[in-house]
Amino acid sequence: MLILIIRRLVGLLATLAVASVLIFAMLEILPGDPAQLILGTDARPDTLFALRHELGLDQPLPAQFLQWISGMLVGNLGTSHTYHIPVAALIGERLPVSLPLAIASLLLAVLFGIPGGILAAMNNDNWLDRAIRMKTQLLLAIPNFWLAMLLVFIFAITLHWLPAGGFSGWNNGGGAVRSLILPAIALAAPQAAILARVTRSALLENLDDTYMIAARARGLSENAALYRHALPNALIPVLSIMGLQFSFLLAGTIIIENVFYLPGLGRLIFQAVNQRDLAVVSGASMLLIASVIIVTFLVDLAALAIDPRLRRRL
């Protein structure tokens, strides 16, 4: 068991290493000279040369990579040339918006998706199941930026219940929460629909399995058999979907944060790409990739905890 975890941990570090090389290579391949970008096209050659030297761009590639990666390990992600502050500080400023948003969306998706799926499976093919299935289909089909605008129109512009956008900062806790509600719903809706559909079909797949018939034959009621036996088995595929969704949620923030004018990570990346702020792009990408890899690792651990078939006796 321990060996299994260590093995996955080694895999995680290897993936991270490969990802960092890829990001570094990608930035190298990109046309354009960062020093030129910073100084503009009419910079004098000697200032350009001095800045190149200062940024370490005149060193061989492996040395540049080592410098970049060792900086990253101690939290030094370079300096943003548009904001003129360290990238780490910039990201640190934006995370308190994006992270709560992603977590709240995931929670919402789980809270509505899984019970919805269970309800649909238990009422297989009657009106409730059909209603839930139709609703999930609809939520899947609507692009989330459009849903976001719809929500803004209803709850902000018409009803004035919630702000239409912007973020007041966590000093004003209530205000911060209020400004995250609509974006979280917009992000969560399609994910909840996916979770509901996966839960429903995973449950239905298990419902007529021999072990479920055997459980009923031991006297368990339909619901007890479902909660004790079918649900844990159905949650295994649901769990891996949830792992994938977390990365979708992180990526989804790029669109949603722009719709709601939230100063989050997604918007930072969007702007950095527009302004060719490579230090910010590489730092933020590395952070996103690391979080996806870590979440995948956690999902693997959870699957190990749930499914004894994955644990090999040592």
Partner: peptide
């Protein structure tokens, strides 16, 4: 079921909850 009547199935691999 389970108290007055017990049942044994053919495929023992399928008749147990794997978890």
């Amino acid at each position: 079921r389970g108290r007055d009547i017990g049942i044994v199935f053919q495929d023992s691999a399928a008749a147990f909850d794997p978890l």
